[in-house]
């Protein structure tokens, strides 16, 4: 049962990921990316990382993709759909991808530690496993400084975006 979920989620993620690269229309690419991220969130949830799965849907499939679609509509990219592909880039990209997959298979073939099934979770007696609670506790105790830094980074990004998109005064 679990392995069926894994297979379906992984297939959805990879097939729509390929769709992102192959589609000529940027809007279709963006929608494929949404589906790919949904598959990835399903994989997260299959790994018992429920909180991260939800965050993945909310942040990526929600906020980030709306931003992408918004920009694509804003720039009106339809006129630039037809272009010749660069043959050298195609060959180079294919070669690099092949080398990468080859290396991956080679390494994974020599990694016996990764062959076993997942060890069962053992939450404390009488309680269910709650990853959101555990992550939240850790986030606001041990990693509280990092949270502050991330907040500062988001503030900086916001200010940067406003500064970047401000119209320059014509000289």
């Amino acid at each position: 049962m679990d392995s069926i979920v894994f297979t379906i989620a992984a297939a959805v993620m990879l097939i729509f990921g390929i769709g992102v690269v192959l589609n000529r229309n940027p809007v279709a690419s963006a929608l494929c990316l949404v589906m790919s991220f949904v598959g990835l969130a399903a994989l997260f949830i299959s790994l018992d990382a429920h909180f991260l799965g939800i965050i993945q849907i909310l942040v990526y499939a929600g906020a980030v993709m709306v931003l992408f679609l918004f920009i694509i509509m804003l720039l009106d990219l339809r006129a630039e759909e037809r272009r010749k592909l660069n043959a050298w880039a195609l060959i180079g990209g294919g070669l690099v991808a092949l080398c990468f997959v080859g290396t991956l298979l080679h390494v994974l073939g020599r990694f016996p530690a990764g062959e076993g099934a997942a060890p069962p979770l053992q939450p404390p007696e009488g309680t269910a496993y709650e990853d959101t609670k555990a992550l939240g506790t850790l986030l606001f105790t041990r990693y509280v400084f990092h949270v502050q830094v991330i907040g500062l980074l988001l503030l900086g990004a916001t200010i940067g975006v406003v500064a970047l998109s401000k119209k320059e005064p014509t000289r």
């Binding site: 990921g17 390929i18 992102v20 790994l47 660069n86 990209g93 690099v96 298979l105 994974l108």
Partner: peptide, 26 residues
């Protein structure tokens, strides 16, 4: 749930797709 290797393989394939896209698309 699959094995660790299956997850690593899927993740590596997704990375390869992204890398190919960066190199091929203009």
């Amino acid at each position: 749930m699959g094995t660790l290797n299956s997850y690593l393989l899927v993740s590596g394939l997704l990375f390869t797709i992204g890398l190919t896209g960066v190199m091929v698309r203009r």
